Amino acid sequence: MKNLVQRWLSVLVCAILVSSLFLTGCSNTSDAQGNQSNLDNYVPRLNGIATVEMKIKGATTPILIEINGNDAPITGGNFVDLVERGVYNGLVFHRVISSPDPFVAQGGDPKGNGTGGFIDPETKQERRIPLEIKLKDDEKPTYGKALGRQGEAVTRPVVLKHLKGAIAMARSQPPDSASSQFYFALSDLDFLDGDYAVFGYVKQGMETVEKIKQGDRIESAKVVSGSENLKK
């Protein structure tokens, strides 16, 4: 009986943590995002590797993030494009769960409250990108389909795992609803693999990531290498 209670408590905790990654605004996805035949030419996309330097206001050590466009070209391209546009400069980390168990530091919402995303100045609409998950031995990622605890990632591991220091996209319940909100994994979070798109890893400055508090702001984010790999 004790083991059964502990198992149910574990499931409940995981459900609560996962729900914290959901955006609370409504979401719609475009026909183009739902049509996989169009995704080979989807832009922005990152064809290769890029490095982003992110400075947190008040922190002395910047965060260096390696963005993997080889295995997450659309998700990585979206992030690098938003960095180049200056979208993240000054934005707040609106959700940080670091205790009792380290979980995530989430930011990137222009509204600052977990309900918003990037409004494209050309379309005047919120940009939404397809969920992008690459499984081991696959040539290309799978799009628009959660592959996590109830899916194919159970039997075949994802290429980009939720290891400590991973950076991934937050989204609302529909798979193709990520926009600009991202999160840093503060510990290994393998139960998120296949359901949320990891697109890179912290290479330097993890001590700064671990000190992020709710309300802290991104002082600046800039691409320091690999900008030539971004296709718009």
Rank of each mutant, 00 (worst) to 15 (best):
R149S: 08
P44H: 11
S20C: 13
G108T: 10
L4G: 09
L192Q: 07
T24I: 08
F182R: 00
Q204N: 13
L82P: 02
P174H: 02
V104P: 04
V154S: 09
Q173W: 07
T24P: 00
V158S: 05
N41E: 13
Q173R: 13
S180Q: 03
I129L: 04
Q6L: 14
L230I: 12
T29I: 03
V87S: 12
V5G: 04
P130H: 04
D137H: 13
L186H: 05
V224K: 07
Q106P: 05
G151W: 10
V92A: 00
P44T: 09
A197C: 10
Y143T: 02
A221D: 08
N113R: 08
D137P: 09
G86V: 06
P73V: 06
T24K: 14
G107I: 13
M169F: 15
L23N: 11
I74G: 01
E122W: 00
T29H: 09
P121T: 04
F93L: 04
F93C: 02
S10P: 01
R127W: 00
V209C: 07
K211Y: 07
R7N: 11
P174E: 03
I133K: 05
F93Q: 07
A146P: 03
G151N: 06
N70Q: 11
T75A: 15
K134F: 10
G25K: 07
G58D: 02
L131C: 10
S220I: 07
P174Q: 02
M169S: 05
G77N: 01
I65D: 01
G165L: 06
D101I: 14
